[in-house]
Design a protein around this nucleic acid. Sequence first.
DNA 1: GATTGAAACTGGCTCAAGCCAGTTGGTCAA
DNA 2: TTGACCAACTGGCTTGAGCCAGTTTCAATC
Lengths: 260, 260
Amino acid sequence: MNDHEERESVRRPPSKRIADELRQAIESGELTPGAKLPSERDLAAHYGTARNTAREAVRILTDAGLVIAEHGRGAYVRKPQALIRLGNDRYSPKYRDAGLSPFLLECAKQGKTGRFEVLSIERATPPTEVAGRLDVSEKTKSVLRRENVFWADDDPVQRVTTYIPWAIATGTGLLQEEVPHQYGIHGVLEDRGHVMARIREEINARMPRADEARHLRLPPGVPVIDVLHTSVDQKGKAYEVTRFVMRADMSGLLYDVPVE
Amino acid sequence: MNDHEERESVRRPPSKRIADELRQAIESGELTPGAKLPSERDLAAHYGTARNTAREAVRILTDAGLVIAEHGRGAYVRKPQALIRLGNDRYSPKYRDAGLSPFLLECAKQGKTGRFEVLSIERATPPTEVAGRLDVSEKTKSVLRRENVFWADDDPVQRVTTYIPWAIATGTGLLQEEVPHQYGIHGVLEDRGHVMARIREEINARMPRADEARHLRLPPGVPVIDVLHTSVDQKGKAYEVTRFVMRADMSGLLYDVPVE
DNA sequence: GATTGAAACTGGCTCAAGCCAGTTGGTCAA
DNA sequence: TTGACCAACTGGCTTGAGCCAGTTTCAATC
């Protein structure tokens, strides 16, 4: 649009530029799932390109699974969908007994050095699937969100996002003190008697989002394994939701974890 | 090309028809991995279409992962590559003790009815990865190959291909008698004292081949889980190689199998 | 013999136009 | 009210042209 942008992306072909803008609109929530995209002819007119070019942009999004095109009707933003659902299970708490997180223990078993990098700790509004599990109060809809990247030697292997209801995070004084990395927030909560079981609710393989691909240094076209954990107490009340996103080719670190 | 074909595929667009022919050439082995495809301009001239149409055909194969296009060099048949490698492990022989194959037992657990359909039993030359494991004699390179489709209720879930060295298949009289379906060739060999351990050597997720998609009734774009087993005796000599290809969304039937 | 450089290839991407085939919503007649 | 039909939309696919940017090859030059 302006000089500045053109200089930076001078070689970005128009089809990809249009796709970028549409993708941005989708990922930012401006275009919600189910929303209809402008028709190919409208896109072409709006961006001043041939219809073929606009069509190519839509195709890029279709290939990426963000959009579904219906002959005669239009193109629509797709509801998120897993490529593979591998199954559900529970896993044992024996790793805590060993004094290590499962990830670090697996790294050690495989002769690698595991470490954490904290990307952010902040107050946030949880995504719907997390809010639903956590039963966050409708008024506040507020959680403590922490994002980590886990490394095995020099490879970024896992991205971990943890969500805890804001009331619990403040009520337990989680924010007032240093959180030991090797246990994570999960471990601190457990020390306070909050967590009794951790349920591995969903295991999926899917294509990574742009930021995930960046953090995990993924080449294009490589899928990730996506695991959603919920931590519950004896009464089944959820205190924590954790999402692991990991390089599929490193998932031995995940799947070698013994099943209860 | 001729009247007959045109009547049958009158509505198949040229781009897809070209893609079909190239795919056929690749899957039949006429174009081996690494082979160079004709250039887009040559394809267009050969089929009497615009270059864009030939280009679209190549793109279809690129999207399907069969071909890789290199700017300035050409398009080449890709070497088969796994999308995801999940890991290696061994699994226990306890299912035989239960008198059921793992598949049937899992079906029962999940309240489904499991059954087999035999597609073929024949003498064949094994693919290289199987020949390598089986250590088949260089001269004959001959195995007994059996192909099954496994059903859970009315869903085709698994396709199973079993390879046994021809000498063993004949030596044990496997061909002279009815092979009990619930055990498979593996079970018959075990009865004869041949099989001591079954090693799950590779677990991959990948896109299905055309025939696999057909047998498993897979919609386009859905990946499969691909597991390669090798059965060995005490001395580590391989007697059988089995390949399981299953719907990824039914793989609970596989992954719920306890690990030793 | 080594280096350079141009020509002849390759795929990447776009344009402007057109026809086909589905979907949708309205109009008009029964 | 119901049904048939048509017009205006949608995406699917093709054409034939052109320019760009990589790679390869080979002949001319150093």
